[in-house]
Deep mutational scan, measured.
Amino acid sequence: MEVRTIKVFTTVDNINLHTQVVDMSMTYGQQFGPTYLDGADVTKIKPHNSHEGKTFYVLPNDDTLRVEAFEYYHTTDPSFLGRYMSALNHTKKWKYPQVNGLTSIKWADNNCYLATALLTLQQIELKFNPPALQDAYYRARAGEAANFCALILAYCNKTVGELGDVRETMSYLFQHANLDSCKRVLNVVCKTCGQQQTTLKGVEAVMYMGTLSYEQFKKGVQIPCTCGKQATKYLVQQESPFVMMSAPPAQYELKHGTFTCASEYTGNYQCGHYKHITSKETLYCIDGALLTKSSEYKGPITDVFYKENSYTTTIK
């Protein structure tokens, strides 16, 4: 009895394709271990004539594949690729409408935090270190965002349907971005203890939790000093293409032309909904596939993004 075979390709990165001759009487799992086709788990399936010449994702289970996976995804987590594939199996079914010149995501599976993050990423200057993220990001900007969303979920250790947080998501993504040249110098002034300067680099240099107003941050924000008295913390120097200011959701007025974009969060910790506000020729609110415009805006804002380049204080 002759062994019926077909020729397929296996890959971990969709760049390096490895030619395989597979036995049609055995499952993919018996031949390769966990195997995925377009995100779908085909591990328990036997090869079919229609699979001839198709590319299958496999887990990096030998040295060659491990090197290829690390170079593309910059992670050695053995569960990463499987999590990416199972997320992709959902995100490829989502709709990605162009809204006001940006790629958004039609609401499904509690994905409003991903839509808000995706919209924000198209408006701030950011370059990702893992080629996987950078490639998928370019495709997302062009309207094909399924891979990018699935990668975000995998890097953030999230599953489809789980509630997510924009600030946490951005923080994970910033860790995989090139923020080497970003720098922030802060000064804390206390009447009792004097003053202390701190220099922050990388992710810490672009994120701040405690106030939404970048102007206020430049002037000074009140913080408790270690001595128990009130101290003032203010920005001395900022070198970065953008800054992200966050605070627990509270009524906040966004003035046209003073910011790049913002995240609105309605609801409580267990259950809520994100919308995205962007400042173009007027203010726009993007909620999944829905767009509304207004000249002014007041609502429960939790993150505001500002364009920056270089700032030095005039406070002496």
Score class of each variant (00 low, 15 high):
Glu2Trp: 13
Glu2Pro: 11
Val3Tyr: 13
Val3Ile: 12
Arg4Asn: 12
Arg4Trp: 13
Thr5Ser: 13
Ile6Val: 14
Val8Thr: 12
Val8His: 05
Thr10Pro: 09
Val12His: 09
Asn14Gln: 14
Asn14Ile: 00
Ile15Lys: 13
Ile15Met: 12
Ile15Phe: 12
Asn16Leu: 09
Leu17Glu: 11
Leu17His: 11
His18Pro: 00
His18Asp: 09
Thr19Trp: 12
Thr19Asn: 09
Gln20Asp: 07
Gln20Val: 12
Gln20Met: 12
Gln20Cys: 07
Val21Gly: 11
Val22Trp: 04
Asp23Arg: 11
Ser25His: 13
Thr27Pro: 15
Tyr28Ala: 02
Gly29Ala: 05
Gln30Leu: 13
Gln30Lys: 14
Gln31Tyr: 14
Phe32His: 07
Phe32Ser: 05
Gly33Lys: 06
Gly33Thr: 07
Pro34Leu: 14
Pro34Ala: 13
Thr35Met: 10
Asp38Asn: 12
Asp38Lys: 10
Ala40Arg: 10
Ala40Tyr: 13
Asp41Gln: 15
Asp41Val: 06
Val42Tyr: 13
Thr43Val: 08
Lys44Tyr: 12
Ile45Asn: 13
Ile45Ser: 14
Lys46Ile: 10
Lys46Leu: 14
Lys46Ala: 13
Pro47His: 03
His48Met: 13
Asn49His: 12
Ser50Met: 13
His51Gln: 06
His51Leu: 06
Gly53His: 10
Gly53Gln: 11
Lys54Cys: 14
Thr55Pro: 07
Thr55Asp: 08
Tyr57His: 13
Val58Tyr: 05
Pro60Cys: 13
Pro60Trp: 06
Pro60Glu: 04
Asn61Asp: 08
Leu65Met: 15
Leu65Gly: 12
Arg66Asn: 14
Ala69Phe: 14
Ala69Leu: 12
Phe70Gln: 09
Phe70Asn: 02
Glu71Asp: 11
Tyr72Cys: 08
Tyr73Leu: 06
Thr75Gln: 10
Thr75Glu: 09
Thr75Tyr: 09
Asp77Ala: 03
Pro78Val: 13
Pro78Leu: 08
Phe80Tyr: 03
Leu81Ser: 09
Gly82Thr: 14
Arg83Phe: 05
Arg83Ala: 09
Tyr84Trp: 06
Met85Glu: 11
Ser86Asp: 14
Ala87Glu: 00
Leu88Val: 07
His90Trp: 06
Thr91Gly: 07
Thr91Ala: 01
Thr91Cys: 09
Lys92Cys: 01
Trp94Met: 00
Lys95Met: 06
Tyr96Trp: 03
Pro97Leu: 12
Pro97Glu: 15
Gln98Ala: 03
Gln98Met: 15
Asn100Tyr: 06
Asn100Glu: 15
Gly101Ser: 03
Leu102Lys: 05
Leu102Glu: 01
Leu102Trp: 14
Trp107Arg: 01
Trp107Glu: 03
Asp109Pro: 04
Asp109Met: 06
Asn110Pro: 09
Asn110Met: 06
Asn111Met: 08
Cys112Ile: 04
Cys112Met: 07
Tyr113Glu: 02
Leu114Arg: 08
Ala115Val: 07
Thr116Pro: 03
Thr116His: 01
Ala117Asn: 02
Ala117Cys: 12
Leu118Arg: 10
Leu118Trp: 10
Leu118Pro: 06
Leu118Tyr: 15
Leu119Arg: 01
Thr120Gly: 00
Leu121Tyr: 01
Gln122Asn: 06
Gln123Tyr: 05
Ile124Ser: 02
Ile124Phe: 04
Ile124Met: 05
Leu126Gln: 01
Leu126Asp: 02
Lys127Asp: 11
Asn129Arg: 15
Asp135Phe: 06
Ala136Val: 05
Ala136Asp: 02
Tyr137Gly: 04
Tyr138Leu: 15
Ala140Thr: 12
Ala140Asn: 02
Ala142Tyr: 13
Gly143Pro: 02
Glu144Ile: 01
Ala145Glu: 08
Ala145Tyr: 04
Ala145Ser: 04
Ala145Phe: 03
Ala146Met: 05
Ala146Glu: 06
Asn147Val: 09
Asn147Cys: 10
Phe148Thr: 06
Cys149His: 02
Cys149Gly: 12
Cys149Trp: 00
Ala150Val: 00
Leu151Pro: 03
Leu151Phe: 04
Leu151Cys: 07
Ile152Trp: 00
Ile152Lys: 01
Ile152Asn: 02
Tyr155Ser: 00
Tyr155Asn: 03
Cys156Asp: 05
Asn157Ala: 03
Lys158Pro: 02
Thr159Asp: 11
Thr159Gln: 13
Val160Ile: 08
Val160Cys: 09
Val160Asn: 02
Gly161Leu: 00
Glu162Met: 05
Leu163Ala: 06
Leu163Trp: 06
Leu163Phe: 13
Leu163Thr: 07
Gly164Glu: 01
Asp165His: 05
Val166Lys: 09
Arg167Val: 00
Arg167Tyr: 03
Arg167Lys: 09
Arg167Trp: 04
Arg167Glu: 00
Glu168Arg: 09
Thr169Ala: 07
Ser171Trp: 15
Ser171Cys: 15
Tyr172Met: 15
Leu173Asp: 00
Phe174Lys: 04
Phe174Asn: 07
His176Phe: 12
Ala177Met: 08
Leu179Thr: 03
Leu179Glu: 01
Asp180Gly: 12
Ser181Cys: 12
Ser181Phe: 12
Ser181Val: 04
Lys183Asn: 06
Lys183Met: 09
Lys183Ser: 10
Arg184Thr: 09
Arg184Met: 01
Val185Trp: 02
Leu186Cys: 08
Leu186Thr: 14
Leu186Met: 14
Asn187Gly: 08
Asn187Leu: 11
Asn187Ala: 12
Asn187Asp: 07
Asn187Trp: 06
Val188Lys: 12
Val188Ile: 13
Val188Asp: 00
Val189Asp: 13
Val189Cys: 09
Cys190Trp: 05
Cys190Glu: 07
Cys190Gln: 06
Lys191Ala: 14
Thr192Leu: 09
Thr192Ile: 10
Thr192Val: 10
Cys193Met: 07
Gly194Lys: 00
Gly194Phe: 09
Thr199Tyr: 08
Thr199Leu: 06
Leu200Val: 13
Lys201Ser: 12
Lys201Asn: 11
Gly202Ser: 02
Ala205Asp: 07
Val206Lys: 00
Met207Ser: 05
Met207Trp: 12
Tyr208Ala: 00
Tyr208Asn: 01
Tyr208Gln: 05
Tyr208Arg: 01
Tyr208Phe: 10
Gly210Met: 01
Gly210Phe: 13
Thr211His: 01
Leu212Trp: 03
Leu212Asp: 04
Ser213Gln: 05
Ser213Asp: 12
Ser213Glu: 04
Glu215Asn: 08
Gln216Gly: 02
Phe217Tyr: 04
Phe217Ile: 13
Phe217Asn: 01
Gly220Asn: 00
Gly220Pro: 07
Gln222Thr: 12
Gln222Pro: 13
Ile223Asp: 06
Pro224Ile: 12
Pro224Glu: 14
Cys225Ser: 05
Cys225Phe: 01
Thr226Met: 11
Cys227Ala: 03
Cys227Arg: 03
Gly228Thr: 01
Lys233Glu: 14
Tyr234His: 07
Tyr234Ile: 09
Leu235Asn: 00
Leu235Arg: 03
Val236Cys: 05
Val236Asn: 00
Gln237Val: 07
Glu239Leu: 09
Ser240Phe: 02
Pro241Phe: 00
Phe242Val: 03
Phe242Gly: 00
Val243Thr: 00
Met245Asn: 01
Ser246Leu: 06
Ala247Trp: 05
Ala247Ile: 03
Pro248Leu: 10
Pro249Ser: 03
Pro249Ala: 03
Gln251Phe: 13
Gln251Lys: 06
Lys255Phe: 06
Lys255Gln: 10
Lys255Ile: 14
Gly257Phe: 00
Thr258Gln: 11
Phe259Val: 05
Phe259Lys: 04
Cys261Glu: 07
Ala262His: 01
Ala262Lys: 03
Ala262Ser: 00
Ala262Phe: 00
Ser263Phe: 07
Ser263Lys: 03
Glu264Ser: 09
Glu264Gln: 05
Tyr265Val: 00
Gly267Glu: 09
Gly267Tyr: 00
Gly267Asn: 07
Tyr269Asn: 10
Gln270Leu: 12
Gln270Asp: 14
Gln270Glu: 15
Cys271Val: 10
Gly272Ile: 00
Gly272Pro: 02
Tyr274Arg: 06
Lys275Gly: 04
Lys275Gln: 00
His276Glu: 01
Ile277Gln: 15
Thr278Leu: 10
Thr278Val: 08
Ser279Cys: 01
Lys280Ile: 03
Thr282Arg: 03
Leu283Arg: 02
Tyr284Thr: 08
Cys285Leu: 11
Cys285Phe: 05
Ile286Gly: 09
Asp287Ala: 03
Asp287Lys: 01
Gly288Phe: 07
Gly288Val: 03
Ala289Cys: 08
Leu290Val: 13
Thr292Arg: 05
Lys293Ile: 07
Ser294Ile: 15
Ser294Asn: 10
Ser295Lys: 14
Tyr297Lys: 03
Tyr297Ser: 05
Lys298Ser: 12
Lys298Arg: 13
Lys298Gly: 00
Lys298Asn: 15
Gly299Met: 04
Gly299Ser: 09
Pro300Ala: 06
Pro300Tyr: 15
Asp303Trp: 00
Asp303Gln: 04
Val304Thr: 08
Tyr306Ser: 02
Lys307Trp: 00
Glu308Phe: 01
Glu308Trp: 09
Asn309Thr: 15
Asn309Val: 10
Ser310Thr: 12
Tyr311Asp: 00
Tyr311His: 06
Thr313Leu: 15
Thr314Leu: 15
Ile315Ser: 15
Lys316Gly: 15
Lys316Arg: 15
Lys316Gln: 13
